[in-house]
Design a protein around this nucleic acid. Sequence first.
DNA 1: GCCTCGTTTGTTAGCGGTAACATGCGCTCC
DNA 2: GGAGCGCATGTTACCGCTAACAAACGAGGC
Lengths: 335, 335
Amino acid sequence: MADVAAAAGVSAMTVSRALRRPDTVSEEVRARVEEASRRLGFVPSRVASALASARTMTVAVLIPSLTNAVFIDLLAGVQETLSPQGYQPLVGITGYGPEAEERVLRTQLAHDPDGVILTGLDHTPGTWDLLRSLTIPVIHTMDLAAEGEHSDCPVQTVGFSQYDAGYAVGAHLAARGRRRIGLIAGQLDPRTRQRCDGWRQALRDAGRHDPALELMVPDATSVALGAELLERTLAAHPDTDALFLCNDDLAQGALFQCVRLGIPVPERLAVAGFNDLAGAAWTVPPLTTVATPRRAIGVEAARLLIAGMADRTPKSRENPRRVDLGFRLMVRETT
Amino acid sequence: MADVAAAAGVSAMTVSRALRRPDTVSEEVRARVEEASRRLGFVPSRVASALASARTMTVAVLIPSLTNAVFIDLLAGVQETLSPQGYQPLVGITGYGPEAEERVLRTQLAHDPDGVILTGLDHTPGTWDLLRSLTIPVIHTMDLAAEGEHSDCPVQTVGFSQYDAGYAVGAHLAARGRRRIGLIAGQLDPRTRQRCDGWRQALRDAGRHDPALELMVPDATSVALGAELLERTLAAHPDTDALFLCNDDLAQGALFQCVRLGIPVPERLAVAGFNDLAGAAWTVPPLTTVATPRRAIGVEAARLLIAGMADRTPKSRENPRRVDLGFRLMVRETT
DNA sequence: GCCTCGTTTGTTAGCGGTAACATGCGCTCC
DNA sequence: GGAGCGCATGTTACCGCTAACAAACGAGGC
């Protein structure tokens, strides 16, 4: 920067100003500095800038996994919103564990991010303490804070009601006249559980809930697992005539397995998934599922964060927002 | 740090040493510093550390897209290898464009990463200039540098031969006795083109190449596109009896469409994909495809990078490595 | 003509660590 | 008994930039 300053015949401070806030210097100086800067190939060090200005222009983004398309879409929304504003996402992977999340968050915080985006609301007490002590904005995604919940620590959430979405699927299957409606769930994180809770309540409201038809396993979900659990369910309860699989991977696996076993879908068995992943509309038959606004959640979370990072007075803390982006039941041919 | 130093009765420098390289201080001092550090909740600022030591402990990772599972797997491999070593990946998205890549690389470099991982070898001259001027290690992935290529700028590559992989598919289809073998490709990045080149050569070697059966479109690939392009191909050339789709998304779409149209696979039409994505083994019938070591490439690239970042003498520059991790043709039932 | 004010540029003093060198101390060894 | 050495710790001077304040200058008001 000193070299550029000398070349442009100004002080280092003026170079800094000319490049960061061109409107604060005279047009002539700005031009000279830009020319010199370009000629010398000057790239200001963000590290030094961060140390001096206490703004790193980075944002910690914690997601459970890279192999689940849901969080990738979330990340993509965050990324595409932050990047144009000059913010660099710092991606951290928590592996669905609150303890790991706390560890990852701590290492991320050492990088002094200007904001934090988290997945879900299921944090350790240590994480809550940490968040409470932060002076930077924090957004929780993919879920909504219940009214009054976390009153000790105001939270901003951007997401949708997993419970309501699960309820919608249950109600839909019941409305289709199905009587033996089963559930298959894996990867039992809090959001999956809420979906199952919603589904269960819908069936209770319809007077058709049978706990025996619930198959919940802790394993990571996959197409293969969906195929396997379908077989287990049908072996144990051959009269099952509808199934909610808590995500599309499982649903696709189940669907493939139905084709293999010669089980007509939806005639003999209705199948519903969750998330509306890329291929869901193209399976044979096309899969009924719930479209979730994952990318939009990422975009909105990043927007709110940018707003919060812009004004240094953290008023957002007193005025926690709760942005419900909803969901859509995509009724296709499997039900 | 000054507070911790005072609390532990030592100098700031000793605190720094006690926390970063515990073996360089006495056992007793180390214990005192750790206790004080924990009690005060001290988290060393990586930003300040970076400025003083000229090591940011970050790595720029540039991939074309977040919505293609191939690069997510690559990223996952990189992430899981870098994280335990204390390195933080800085993810940049290039959107498959060399110009965008150069822009993204420039902004990433402002963060002073200690290393760079790039996708492919298709860079702008400006990017090559930039890379040549860097003193940090750089790894190119997903492709292999040809012998003698880029002799002006030694490159380290970790990947596999896209050409050979394409050749293997072509040879396989020919060996199955197919005579009218078509090609469907989208997202025409250099790696896709190489696969197509390999496939084409295989068919020429078998004496069965017909350029009319090649359908190459620039659009981003998707399941929907695969279905659409299958119809177009069959409409134009109803006698097609085998198809290579340049990735699994397209192949799955084509496969679904075959089921819909009542075209028996593989009896009437053989279908081969590329990448062996998660669901490929579970489609009906299971998809023949090429398993590519994407995650392993990420892991190996990160390993090489860590080695290069560890010794400050950039000897690796003189001794460029070319790590071929190969591929596997997964022959399943669609061929 | 002098004072005030706004605009542009410069000066100073850090931001929070760490590299490099200096110091002090206990030991071994001749 | 003193030179010489190795280890543990301290001191100094930055790393490259920017906040905050100071200064210089021209324009307008009375």
